[in-house]
Every structure is written in C-alpha cells, then in structure tokens.
Design a protein around this nucleic acid. Sequence first.
DNA 1: AACAAGGTTCCGTACTATGGAACTACCGAA
DNA 2: TTCGGTAGTTCCATAGTACGGAACCTTGTT
Lengths: 262, 262
Amino acid sequence: MTSPTGTQAVDRAAQLLIEVARHRDPVTFTELIAASGLAKSTTSRLLTALERNGLVRRDLAGRFSPGEVFVSYAWRGGAEADLVSVAQPVLAELGEDTGETVNLGVARDGGLVEQIAQVDSKYLIGGTNWVGLRVPLHCSALGKALIAFGGAELPGGHLEQRTDRTVTSRAALADELTAVRERGYAVTVEELEPGLVAVAAPVFADDGIVIGALSVSGPASRLTTAAIPAAASSCMTAARSLSALLGHDRPARGVQPAALAS
Amino acid sequence: MTSPTGTQAVDRAAQLLIEVARHRDPVTFTELIAASGLAKSTTSRLLTALERNGLVRRDLAGRFSPGEVFVSYAWRGGAEADLVSVAQPVLAELGEDTGETVNLGVARDGGLVEQIAQVDSKYLIGGTNWVGLRVPLHCSALGKALIAFGGAELPGGHLEQRTDRTVTSRAALADELTAVRERGYAVTVEELEPGLVAVAAPVFADDGIVIGALSVSGPASRLTTAAIPAAASSCMTAARSLSALLGHDRPARGVQPAALAS
DNA sequence: AACAAGGTTCCGTACTATGGAACTACCGAA
DNA sequence: TTCGGTAGTTCCATAGTACGGAACCTTGTT
C-alpha cells in the first residue's frame, strides 16, 4: 500500500523529526529506525538532510535532538506570540457570548499569572486593560485554574491576603482546587479585589500539558452566584476549542508509523 | 545543477519550514514561492505534507506559522533543557581551564538571573551549589552581561544594596554596561557578596539574540585585579564556542535558496 | 585479534516527485 | 450580474530522485 500523496520522502522525514522533537531526551539512530520502520540507509539519508538544514542536531554520542530552528523559535518566545494570535478569535467569541471582560493568562515565575490577551467588556462597568498585569496565583481564577491542572505551582511562603475574602489557608485552597478539577473551572469571588468576580478554565497544548487559562471577569453585581455557571460553561467551551486549535485531542496526526514502511 | 545528496524533496521542504519558523509573523503561500523559487504545485504539495504532519499550521487567511510540534517543544521548555546539555562540555572545559566555579545563567522575570548549570571549583574554597539560585541582575556578573547585550532588562524601582560595593546608581550602572559592551565581558567585585568576584560573557543563539551568560566565580583572594583578565578571556572564549554550538555565526546553512530550483 | 554493533556509502532499479497546464475558488470592479 | 484577476489545488506523463540491499567503514568489546 502506498500513500497517494506524492510526498513519501517528506512524510517520512517529518515523522523522524517529530519523533526527535517529542522526546525529552536525545534519541538514538537505532530508536529512530525502530520507530519509523525504515531501512537503515533511508533513515541515515533523511536524518543527514534534516541535520544539514538545522532541524535536528547530533550530539557527540550520535544521538539526535531538535536543532537550531527549534531552539531559536523557543527562545524568541514564538510559542507565546502564537498562542495570543491563535487565541484572539476565541477570546472575541467568548466576549461576544458573555459580554464580560475576557482574558488569556499564562504562569510566570514567582507564583504569578500574567494576562497576555484581553477582550473588553461590552458594558460600561467592566475591567480596565489588564494586559501585562501580573496577579498572584492563589487569589485569581486564572491562577487557580492553572494550579489545579498542573500548569503552575503554588510558591512556598506566605499567601498574600488581598481582600477579606482571599483564601490564605493552604488546606482550604487544596480543597478548592480539587473542586476545580471536578467542575473543570475555577471561580474567585472578591478574593483579588472587592466587587470583582471571575471564572477560568485551563487551556491544553497538543501534548496535554496546560499552557494557560481563559477567564471571564465582571462585577459581582452581574456575575452573581446564579450567573456564574453559565459564564463558566461558556468559558470552558471556549477553552476547549482553543485547546483544539492548538492540536489537543487531535484525532490522528498525519501518517501513522506503520504506513511509512513500504 | 543538482544536489547529489538524494534528498531533494526533503531539503526543499526543510527550507520552506525554516522560512516559516524564522519569520515572526505568519508567511503567505506566495512569499514562500518567492523565497524558495519552486513551482506553485511543488510548494503546495510540500506545504500540505508539512501541515499534515503538524510542522506548520495554516490560519484562516491561508498564512503559515510553525505548527504544534514547535509549539509544544517551546512550552515544554525544550530549549532550556537543550541549552543545559549542549553547554555541559563547554562548562567543563572552562572549569578545567580556570579551576574556578563556572555557571550558566538565564534571565528570569522580575529582574533576576537564575543559574541553570554549574561546574564546581577545583579548590577547597569555592562556590557552593548555586543551581536554581536567583540573584539580582544589577549586582551579578551574569546579570550585567545579560543586560549589556540585550538579554535582559533592568527592572524599574529600587536597586537593592547587597554589599557596600553594590552599584545602585542607574547612571553609574549605565556607564559600566557600556564598558561591558566594549570589553565583551562583565565583572563584579564584591557587589553581590563580600569576598566574591565573578566575570561573565554573553551566549548568543543562532539568530543573534542573547539567551544566557557564562560566568567564572571565585574568592577575591584568587580572582585579583591581575587575575581577572585571564579568567575573562577564557570565559569569553567558552561563551563564543557555546554560541557557535548553538549555531551562532554558522557560516552556511545547508542548501541556499538559489540552489533549490532546478 | 577477532567479533559485534552502529552507521554510512554505493548503485541499479522502481516508483516517487516534478512542474506545466487545466481547474476551482474567491474577490473586487464595472 | 458578469467579468477579469489573483490565489491555490489537482491532474498527469515524464524525468530523475529516492529507495534499500549489500558492501563497507568505524568504534568499542571479549
């Protein structure tokens, strides 16, 4: 059986590249032969081509890691820029849906979450521009969503009491995070700022790790206990579709290894 | 003229992929045709193959950005893990050369630099294990090297006075950074901790941005004014060879576009 | 020294990739 | 609405690239 695409060589090379990029540690030539099912000579030729183009790198022991092209993409922050641009339409739709301020947040060092994209509320009373703003993990909906699903770690030390409703007990927080995992979304009610209520849901990358969270924020007067479930539901749907755009739960990735060999 | 490598299709696809990965913004099909000099049909076929394998992504407007494989590599922190492993032999040699404690540092949020790899001093009096330790940019050699070459930004606000020799005036610091750029290396003499002297030089990624710095640290008794230039010179040499390993100043990257077309 | 494992190069053949042309889709203008 | 122009995909016969078995080289092991 042959693939009728007219790109056999490229498909094979791409699968080798993916095999290298997905592994955390360098991959050996032999492992690549096993994984692809290709002939030694073919594998050697393809890998040499990938190496020549800077897509893979060979260390002194002859093992392969992703090459300079990957490295400079990552250092440049390409993934985050990409996330913002891919997310934009999703944020817009969520904003349309709920009418409230919508934010995309990612974890930062030091137990903080930074808002990296925003859609403004349709109401006169709504959030200001929070892009670039960093808030603590433990008292923001974005932060709780990140921690609950493994996208961030709560730092040691004192948990700042931002308002009289801020949860500062680690035990209480742990219980709440369990609830977050069960529900699929996080809520903060006036824990960061009096009168501010938010819900958030996690965003997954294609390999299942959490890379950020999506939130809907508004005044306590609109996001009442009764209104929260609907907002949370929209938020979760949006987060899921953003995850899907990033390749999470993608049903089948191109050619399967078995189909590579003749 | 043809390349006698037996990998024409893979080379061409790799060049298309690189063109997409290098650009900060999405690239159009037409730009890719121009850049590669290939026929429309060939370009279309190759791009479809890359897309099918998750190496590029096509947005709604039909423009191309790096695909999920790049995104998840970057989010996973693959580049940093890679840096540590690529750097290890270079650090080891620098340690051998100078006998002092050698560190690799990268910029973190909040005006800090984190040491992510280390080789211990050969002497009994030397640095302890600093891996994971974060120190301020303005009073560490690593930090100054990073700021001077654009790899980090000095945060606003108060510059902490760690010792009586810490430079806390922004004007004085600016002057010193100019000197760092001219010399190619940074020095701190008892500015972070009494008795501790260090020199550092920047490490460049393949596209010329600064991703980290390499330092040599020791007690003031050994790293005297007279001994500093030699240590700094070794440090710069090591930093340059590490940069070279990362592809910086690589003379020619594989096949040139002109050679792609038949 | 002989062997084994890991990788590369060689070379004739088979079949994959090529690119011109035809085709489709979409857009803006008249 | 029709019309041209631009952007991109599919088709197909042909050329020539990529294939893989086997020979060969290199390095580490018994």
